[in-house]
């Protein structure tokens, strides 16, 4: 069972910079040509990605 909330990435605010990928401790995020791909099965709800996003594009859902 994974965590109590889900990472939501606002595709319009996201500038595809990859910062969230670099701080995610479980490799739940990957940057692809199309944008960020989120793997909810890997996420441990640590919130690091939310804290690092310079465009404030990530929130809890």
């Amino acid at each position: 069972m994974w965590g109590e909330w889900m990472v939501y990435i606002n595709g319009i605010k996201c500038i595809k910079c990859g910062a969230c990928v670099g701080v995610c401790p479980t490799q739940a995020l990957t940057l692809t040509e199309k944008g960020i791909v989120f793997d909810k099965t890997k996420c441990i709800n640590c919130g690091a990605c939310i804290q690092i996003c310079p465009a404030n594009a990530i929130s809890k859902e």
């Binding site: 990859g18 990928v21 670099g22 490799q27």
Partner: peptide, 24 residues
């Protein structure tokens, strides 16, 4: 900076928040 490959090899290259800056 968005490195994931080294972690697949078992090396810890995750950026901790204290030692991370972000630029805009």
């Amino acid at each position: 900076a968005e490195s994931t490959i080294a972690r697949m090899a078992g090396l810890n290259t995750t950026s901790d928040l204290y030692n991370s800056d972000t630029g805009y």
